[in-house]
Design a protein around this nucleic acid. Structure first.
Lengths: 234, 234
DNA sequence: CGCTTACTTGAGCGCCATCAAACATAGTGG
DNA sequence: CCACTATGTTTGATGGCGCTCAAGTAAGCG
């Protein structure tokens, strides 16, 4: 599993397939808060839909920030069962490791552009700048908080509660004008929530029938009653 | 939920109920690696069986290390469903937060003695000593790794696979002379694995019937065939 | 428009939860 | 030392939530 990813950017002259995205909102630009601060150069790079960014247990050479698109981080069991630990959306940093290897694999869900910096550069910066070290710790702690919340969901929530939690999370993270455009398919949602794609679909249909959400195509969802959705969450 | 815990050590003159435990093995003494390094004084304190150490969302005033005993960290849903995120055994550090509050509650499973230092002391030390900052980050990253593994377990493993994983984890962490003395009850195990206590009991009985493990009382377990247990894990 | 992929919906089943009771263990007081 | 009690564990019976298998429908895309 420690094979070098063929998809990793090999050198700094790597071709970026995507376009430069509009500037991220300053407050959410965690990457810039680091890279900018210590004068690191962030390279842009693009991945196509379904392309692997790095594999599980691969050396963690880079740290990434989503510029546009969406990424899933996941673990696999030997028989193919998959648990997605997190979705990474524009502005999010992923692939940050304190150790030498990536603990989860990462793939682009749709065409995705990222900014990346070498892990060693960040390590070096953290060694001289306490503010950078503090920020790296805070980002890992933030991931841990999400994982802890997600353990509660996976271990103890019902299917409907999980889907309600998911919708509220996505609403918070990617809704524009109360509409969210989900980048991921039903199977991804299921593998994130510890459910099958059919169960996810049934839950969404039920919420639709109750008027709690509206569809404009399967992945365009508008929440019509967040209060009732909160009640369905535990 | 932000109420001050009545169980928290109020002042430095707080009475320690427990005894001073034998010195921890140097390599596993993460706390000493920090506290010793920067000259922080670690206070000892004891909690009785079932006693709360801190509550969810309480201000994170201290960071703890288990000297003897065992601790569970958990989250609750409003109706009482509980997810234990981790068990903390002698040598383990817990309650370390990058932010201002504890994201999980913590309780002593059995009579437990801890060493503790003020979070602000560690923060201050991290601000001047890069090595300390690096260590704090590494400890949080280690917790994150465990949480990521546990998400896979909770989301995708069967009951038998979960119990097998649990046994191997406990064997690794607290077995002496190939015997493990579990400090926690079946309900705790269930709440850690996202199962009921009955399902945990049935899985253990089945492993016993297959000769994979032996009992000397319900909580004294000896693994007789780790290879077969690994096969039962996914 | 035709093809492919994704999504929805239905039917039936199985794993694990629930409910219940028996059994074991540890601690207590006589 | 031994009933006695409380707590924890095991085991059984039953049921339900979510999975599996299957078919039909919709949507995206050349």
């Amino acid at each position: 599993m420690l094979t070098q990813s063929l998809n990793a950017p090999a050198i700094s002259t790597s071709i970026t397939r995507g376009k430069i995205a509009p500037a991220l909102h300053p407050v959410s630009d965690k990457f810039g808060a680091i890279a900018g601060h210590v004068g690191l150069v962030a390279t842009e790079f693009s991945y196509r839909k379904e392309e692997e960014i790095y594999g599980e247990d691969e050396p963690a050479e880079y740290v990434y920030q989503v510029v546009s698109g969406a990424v899933r981080s996941y673990k696999l069991l030997s028989d193919g069962r998959r648990q997605i630990g997190a979705f990474h959306l524009p502005g999010d940093v992923f692939g940050l490791e304190s150790g030498a290897t990536h603990r989860l694999a990462a793939e682009a869900i749709i065409d995705t552009t990222v900014r990346l910096v070498k892990r060693t550069s960040l390590e070096k910066a953290a060694g001289t700048d306490v503010q950078v070290a503090r920020k790296l710790w805070a980002m890992t702690a933030s991931e841990l908080r999400h994982a802890e919340d997600h353990m509660l969901l996976l271990g103890r929530k019902t299917a409907m509660e999980r889907v309600a939690t998911f919708l509220l999370e996505m609403d918070r993270r990617l809704a524009v004008a109360s509409m969210m455009a989900l980048p991921m398919c039903r199977r991804d949602i299921g593998d994130y929530l510890g459910l099958t794609l059919e169960t996810v679909s049934r839950a969404l249909s039920q919420l639709h029938a109750q008027g709690i959400l509206g569809f404009s195509g399967a992945r365009q969802i508008v929440l019509r009653n967040r209060a009732r959705l909160h009640n369905l969450d535990a």
